[in-house]
Each structure stands twice: as C-alpha cells, then as structure tokens.
C-alpha cells in the first residue's frame, strides 16, 4: 500500500486500486463535486461560443463547445437565466474551474 499527497490531493493505492480525495473533502470517490455552475471541468480550448452578453438562456441552450485531448465537449445552460458577461473567447485555453459565463 502506498500513499502520497500532491497538488492538494491525497492519493492511495489500497488493495490493488487507486483512490484520491481532495484535502478539503472528507469523503469522495476521487472526483470533484458536481456543480450547476458553468465551468470548465478540465483544461481545454474554446472552439465555439453560443452565449452572448444580455442573452436570455433557457435550460438546455448551448453555451460553449470546447476541445480537449482531441475530443469535443459541448456545454448547455443548466438553468433559465440572463447572461451578464461572457468570460471566455474562441481559441482561449481554459483551466479546470474557469467559468464560461457570469449570470445576471
């Protein structure tokens, strides 16, 4: 069995399997908690942008398309609401946790 802390995450190799928890989180299954915020879940590049400032989005409306590890991922609005600001632009490289838009 081996354990290690790196980059704010604790890792363990336990009974042949690998688990990790973030330092803040007591319990978890190795992944960040799901959120209804529109954020990049991993580092990626913005390839398409649908949302505009002042636009009223319906739940399910396309917001942004990103590319990572050669695959495309599309993100939809998780709720009805008005866009205050678009925080990304096409071609921009995002880090995990970067927000796509700001709600009004």
């Amino acid at each position: 069995m081996k354990t290690l802390i790196a980059n704010g995450k604790k890792w363990i190799h336990f009974d042949g399997k690998i688990y990790s928890i973030t330092s803040q989180k007591k319990k978890g299954s190795g992944t960040e908690a799901e959120t209804t915020d529109l954020v990049a879940p991993f580092s990626c590049k913005v390839t398409k942008l649908f949302a505009k400032p002042g636009q009223s989005l319906k739940k399910g409306d396309p917001v942004v398309t990103v590319e990572s590890m050669k695959m495309e991922y599309s993100y939809e609005s998780p709720k009805d609401g008005e866009v205050a600001k678009v925080l990304v632009q096409i071609g921009q490289i995002l880090q995990a946790g970067d927000e796509f838009i700001q709600w009004k």
Partner: peptide, 28 residues
Amino acid sequence: NEIPEGALKILEKTNSASTQIQQSNSSA
C-alpha cells in the same frame, strides 16, 4: 469509484506527515 472505509481512514491518518512534504516543495 467508491473509496473503501479502510482507505479513507489511512488517508486521514497520513494527513500531517504529508502536509510537510507538500510545504517543503512548493512546486507541484
């Protein structure tokens, strides 16, 4: 990927020792 109780307990226990390593090396 459910983390077993046993593994969780060990991770909690290793906390302080590992924190030192983290601090001693500010690079990732």
